[in-house]
Amino acid sequence: MRIRYVLLHAYGMGGTIRTVVNQANAMAAIGHDVEIVSVVRRREEPQFALDPAVSLVPLVDQREGVRPDGVGRKVWRRLRGKIVPHGEFAASYFTERVEKAVIDYVSSVDEGILVTTRPALNLIAARRGRPSVVRVAQEHMNLAAYPETIRQEIARHYDAFDAVAVLTGTDREEYQRLLPRTPIVRIPNAVETVGREPSRQRNPVIVAAGRLVAQKGFDLLIPAFAQVVRRHPEWRLRIFGTGPKTAELRGLISEHGLSAQVSLKGRTSRLPEELARASVYALSSRFEGLPMVMIEAMSHALPVAAFDCPTGPGDVLTHEVDGLLVPQRDVDALAAALDRLVSDRELRLRLGGAAAVTARGYAPEAVMPMWEELFLDLTGGKPLGDGYRAVSRGVTSPDS
């Protein structure tokens, strides 16, 4: 099969990029003809390793900066820029030059499978892709996280897809209600779980990781941890990631008098080692798609305390079995859950052991066959009726 993945910035970092690179590598490893198209290129080399068989094709080279367009952005939006609507989280990338490059590329593809990976790209594929191409939209964020402008465009145009792939069972129900005539398939992101060193539950360390943005809720986690550390002053919170909220979070740490107990560690290439040395993982997000780093932490037998935000944590965790779920944005409840884990090593060991078992369901060997089976069904003309589940080599989708 010829499979083309379109990413906004395949040379960057981030969960969606890592996920799609892993998919592309897996499809190439079993003999398919795979290409990744990067809408923009802002680095010399990709940050995630590509299989040598995977072609990487950039559309707009921005390594020397973003060149001005022939017309202003507002004029472009008025004249033609209706495909990428206002409210798309990455709308600022889609200048006249960039949007035109994607439209031209998508309209030129006349065979094989085209996989697009965010609403802006999905909408262009839906409106400009050829019917001769099998078109698959990937959604890496829950529907409710999008503004109304995006949800309206999804409802209006996603019927053009042969399938829309989402990450969780909750996502599948939400998208199916909005798109009753469109096949919605749940395939989670794959997380490498083999050979992960389990936590020994000996270090008084809580770990959290993600972009330092409002979505991740670290501004809620820090005051929750402030309650914990009053009773357990030996414990530490380490937050890994970079982003625009760095200065604000440093101020919050100082405001709570936690400079010795909370550290912003920045980006690390050694997150597996950091997770193995920790004893608890905290997820404080306001919303999620599928929290990959949380699942990675679970593969290290780390118990999780998480907001039951839309969506993801509650689709992965079972409360009191492999983690603790608390009402979203409830700082006191998150503090109480963390306090329970910090206070009870036996509880941590029990929940962490169950978490490691749960994480195995997201291993590449469980997930990647679902993608191949979906692609084979689509190219073979198999109808994807209600309740379709990708099944391959004895593996079924986790929501089957």
Rank of each mutant, 00 (worst) to 15 (best):
V304Y: 06
L114T: 06
A224G: 02
V316Y: 13
A276Q: 02
V37Y: 02
S279Y: 10
G312C: 09
E365I: 14
L59G: 01
A155H: 12
V331Y: 04
A49S: 06
K74Q: 10
K100Y: 03
L271C: 10
L220H: 14
T268L: 05
N189C: 11
V115N: 13
H86Q: 09
T16I: 15
A282G: 10
L376V: 10
V331K: 04
L324K: 08
G112E: 08
E139S: 12
L351F: 01
R2I: 14
V6T: 08
L351W: 00
P233T: 15
Q227C: 07
V391G: 06
G31I: 05
F375H: 13
I3L: 12
S132I: 03
L302I: 10
A276W: 03
M368T: 07
S392I: 05
P233V: 15
V228S: 02
V133M: 03
L178M: 15
Y158I: 11
F161H: 10
E35H: 05
G353N: 00
H256M: 09
G314Y: 10
V40E: 00
W76I: 11
P46F: 00
F89C: 04
I187S: 14
M141R: 14
A305R: 14
T246S: 12
G15S: 11
V20C: 08
V228D: 03
G112Q: 08
S397F: 09
I103W: 00
A145Y: 04
A125H: 03
D315M: 07
S107N: 04
E99L: 05
A297F: 03
G257R: 04
R236M: 12
E273F: 01
A247I: 01
I36A: 01
I113Y: 11
G361F: 09
S284A: 14
I187R: 12
E372N: 10
G361D: 13
L325P: 11
L271Q: 06
A214H: 14
P68G: 11
T246G: 11
L79F: 04
R270H: 12
G210A: 12
P147W: 04
V6P: 07
D308G: 14
V293F: 03
L178H: 14
Y105G: 00
P369V: 02
V304S: 07
G323S: 07
L56T: 07
D171S: 08
A247F: 02
V57G: 00
G217R: 05
A24I: 03
P204L: 14
P52S: 04
L50T: 00
G65L: 06
H256E: 13
M1K: 07
Y11W: 03
E111D: 12
R67M: 04
D399S: 11
V331E: 06
A160W: 05
E45G: 00
P291S: 15
D377H: 12
V357C: 01
W371H: 13
M13F: 10
E255W: 10
E111N: 08
K82C: 11
V66I: 13
